[in-house]
Amino acid sequence: MKITLKIWRQKNAENPGRLVTYERDGVSADMSFLEMLDVLNEDLTAKGEEPVAFDHDCREGICGSCGVVIDGVAHGPQRTTTCQLHMRSFADGDTITVEPWRADPFPVIKDLVVNRGAFDRIIAAGGFVSVNTGAAPEAHATPVPKVDADRAFEAAACIGCGACVAACPNASAMLFTAAKITHLGALPQGQPERAARVVSMLDQQDAEGFGGCTNIGECAAVCPAGVPLETISQLNFDLRRSMTPSRRH
């Protein structure tokens, strides 16, 4: 098939970027979106033009490295990661616009590559259980009801790609933070630090410059890992509870 690409090219954080048009022919419907970009890059290299920089690694939808905005939607028309999007989702003759995640806390490094270091700092602020290696009790010492384990898993499936931020009109990271709050809060192991965790992670989220959540739901609509919107309700529940002095640890 034949397509027209409009791709955001930006040399580095200091220089302004612009959309550059590339005409493509002979695109196979079975190619992944990133393989289509690989072929473009091979052709650009052959012509002596610098290839398009984009983040990617596992190419099976789990590492969270890839992610671009395709025709205004984070990760494009299917609810999956960019690497798992295939060209069969597009039609012959389509014009496809490709841009990086747009959010102040995710500054552009080059072309489609952005800096998502803010997510790591939110985790460092409290997205863990404080247990040193070797200090763990026998795994079966604390049974966990299956429904709780399943709920924890559902939230823990977050791949940290940042699509939720890119999709949110406020550039809020609420779904990302709420996924970790919900995951750890659903398990007995997460209880001792539950109240402190939500406060410190939210403080960090604010400090990074992410916007507030106004319950729009664009985040969950694009989340390739299917993290449910209700995790944000859970976060708000935990936050309110943590502000009740008697509950605070």
Partner: peptide, 9 residues
């Protein structure tokens, strides 16, 4: 044991 204590689901 270690992984369960960390909250691995």
């Amino acid at each position: 044991d270690q992984c369960v204590a960390q909250g691995i689901p």
